[in-house]
Design a protein around this nucleic acid. Sequence first.
DNA 1: GTCCATGCAAATGATTTGCAGTATC
DNA 2: GATACTGCAAATCATTTGCATGGAC
Lengths: 161, 161
Amino acid sequence: MDRKGLSKEEVAAILKEKGLKVTIQRVLVLKTLSACEDQHLTAEEIYELVKVEYPEIGLATVYRTIQLLLELNLIDRINLDDGFARYEIGTFNKGKARHHHHHLICLKCGKVASFEDDLLEGLEQKIQESTGFVVSDHEVKLYGCCKECGGNLLEKCSTTK
Amino acid sequence: MDRKGLSKEEVAAILKEKGLKVTIQRVLVLKTLSACEDQHLTAEEIYELVKVEYPEIGLATVYRTIQLLLELNLIDRINLDDGFARYEIGTFNKGKARHHHHHLICLKCGKVASFEDDLLEGLEQKIQESTGFVVSDHEVKLYGCCKECGGNLLEKCSTTK
DNA sequence: GTCCATGCAAATGATTTGCAGTATC
DNA sequence: GATACTGCAAATCATTTGCATGGAC
């Protein structure tokens, strides 16, 4: 649990910098998201993880904290159409308009990998010229079959999200 | 309401071809989606539209029909993160793996425009080479500001979804 | 000490489901 | 005529909210 990600002190500093009151609950939620930055956690999962260190926390607080962190652009919301919203820590890109992560979703095992790339720079330009729509951000989901599943969609394997 | 899209007969033929029992409710749901192909309707909106022609229909039937049409790949689900799932008639591309529509979402007026394009052909190749992930489909959302809103995100205007 | 944040329980709201009646094939 | 589909009402379940208490500054 304490293997990687930001320390409590670093997380507290971020909250303070954003003008937020620093509470144990907020620190732990953000620290958990930071430690699990490759995991796309649901609110319920965050709740369970934080409870390990601080069993008194309520689920409603987790939801309220998530809401707050979203508004501050500290975290991103992802929707994998399985009935849960999922969250991951933001990219902290300096200055520029916020960019979401992009995701590779394996249709066989359900695994989700993130990747970071300004894939669509040329496209945004093209769209703007042809439609007048000015693109400020994009979100991309790629569906297919991961290496471990062998690129073959016909077999079955276990699910990890 | 009867302006464009498929006729009842055409819709009935599609259902029959898929091996489904042809009922008034199914015909009207699919016909409505076809008539509003540029509108990204919610289940509730479909319900209201079908009720005009067939007031006895129940909301549960609309949901069950949508589910069915999704499984048959006749329609696509889109999520604009506003708490509703939205639906649009599929692209009917012959043979090939299914491709979602892509969407331009105006952050100012909320308008959503669709566009169809194999934007990411090169990228899919690149990803496959570097990660072993075989991409079979992609979904892209572009956020920004539409022509009518003047590409300036600071003003306000009415919302149409 | 003030005011905001929290925990609990109750409310909300989109979507799903059970069941008895009804329509399609 | 058998079976699958429908409508209604009740159930579900993620998320939100009201309110009294507790904690951060």
